Amino acid sequence: MTRPTEHAPTLRRRSLLLAGVAASAGAAPWVAAQAQAYPSRPITLIIPWPAGGSTDRHLRTLAELASKHLGQAITVENRPGAGGTLGPSAMAQTAKPDGYTIAQFPLGLLRMPHMQKTSWDPLNDFTYIIGVSGYTFGLTVKADSPYKTFKDYIEAARQRPGEINYGSTGTGSSPHLLMEELAGNAKVKLVHVPFKGNADLQAALLGGHVMAQSDASGWDKYVDAGQMRLLVTFGEQRTQRWPEVPTAQELGYGVVSTSPYGLAGPKGMDPAVVKALHDAFKKAMDDPKHMEVLAQLNQAVWYRNGEDYKKWAGETFAKDKALIERLGLAAK
Score class of each variant (00 low, 15 high):
residue 69 H to W: 06
residue 6 E to F: 14
residue 287 D to K: 06
residue 265 G to S: 09
residue 110 L to S: 07
residue 246 P to C: 00
residue 219 W to T: 11
residue 171 T to L: 11
residue 43 I to T: 09
residue 51 A to H: 06
residue 62 L to T: 05
residue 312 W to K: 04
residue 167 G to S: 09
residue 124 N to I: 01
residue 20 G to C: 09
residue 204 A to I: 00
residue 156 A to Y: 02
residue 56 D to Q: 03
residue 186 A to P: 02
residue 330 A to K: 06
residue 193 V to K: 06
residue 315 E to I: 07
residue 83 G to L: 03
residue 199 A to C: 02
residue 63 A to V: 04
residue 137 F to D: 03
residue 17 L to W: 10
residue 47 I to F: 06
residue 275 K to A: 13
residue 176 H to L: 04
residue 81 G to F: 00
residue 324 I to Q: 04
residue 118 T to V: 07
residue 116 Q to I: 14
residue 247 T to Y: 03
residue 221 K to N: 10
residue 231 L to G: 06
residue 79 R to Q: 12
residue 164 I to A: 04
residue 328 G to N: 07
residue 145 S to F: 03
residue 32 A to M: 11
residue 316 T to S: 13
residue 39 P to M: 01
residue 182 L to Y: 08
residue 74 I to L: 07
residue 176 H to I: 01
residue 196 K to M: 14
residue 24 S to T: 14
residue 124 N to H: 06
residue 309 Y to Q: 12
residue 294 L to T: 10
residue 32 A to R: 13
residue 169 T to W: 05
residue 270 D to M: 12
residue 280 A to G: 05
residue 164 I to Y: 05
residue 315 E to H: 10
residue 257 S to M: 15
residue 134 G to E: 14
residue 312 W to V: 02
residue 238 R to M: 06
residue 300 A to Y: 12
residue 332 K to V: 09
residue 189 K to Y: 10
residue 186 A to L: 01
residue 175 P to H: 08
residue 247 T to Q: 11
residue 127 T to H: 05
residue 305 N to H: 13
residue 204 A to H: 01
residue 146 P to L: 05
residue 151 K to A: 15
residue 68 K to P: 08
residue 117 K to G: 06
residue 90 A to C: 13
residue 281 F to N: 11
residue 95 A to W: 01
residue 192 H to Q: 10
residue 235 G to Y: 01
residue 308 D to P: 04
residue 6 E to V: 15
residue 256 V to W: 05
residue 122 P to M: 00
residue 144 D to G: 00
residue 92 A to S: 08
residue 199 A to Q: 12
residue 115 M to W: 04
residue 169 T to F: 08
residue 263 L to W: 14
residue 98 D to A: 08
residue 275 K to S: 09
residue 35 A to M: 07
residue 121 D to V: 00
residue 300 A to Q: 10
residue 218 G to I: 02
residue 174 S to M: 11
residue 244 E to W: 05
residue 214 S to V: 12
residue 208 G to N: 04
residue 12 R to H: 09
residue 275 K to E: 10
residue 80 P to K: 01
residue 80 P to V: 05
residue 235 G to A: 06
residue 96 K to R: 15
residue 302 W to A: 13
residue 269 M to H: 02
residue 177 L to H: 07
residue 98 D to V: 05
residue 10 T to S: 13
residue 184 G to D: 10
residue 179 M to E: 06
residue 271 P to A: 07
residue 70 L to H: 02
residue 204 A to L: 01
residue 203 A to M: 08
residue 148 K to F: 09
residue 125 D to F: 00
residue 66 A to S: 08
residue 5 T to R: 11
residue 149 T to M: 03
residue 189 K to H: 12
residue 26 G to M: 10
residue 150 F to C: 04
residue 215 D to N: 14
residue 122 P to L: 03
residue 101 T to I: 10
residue 44 T to K: 11
residue 59 L to C: 09
residue 150 F to E: 04
residue 191 V to H: 02
residue 36 Q to V: 12
residue 185 N to G: 03
residue 105 F to D: 02
residue 329 L to N: 08
residue 107 L to D: 06
residue 200 D to R: 00
residue 34 Q to R: 15
residue 161 P to R: 05
residue 323 L to K: 14
residue 92 A to I: 00
residue 145 S to T: 07
residue 148 K to E: 13
residue 54 S to V: 09
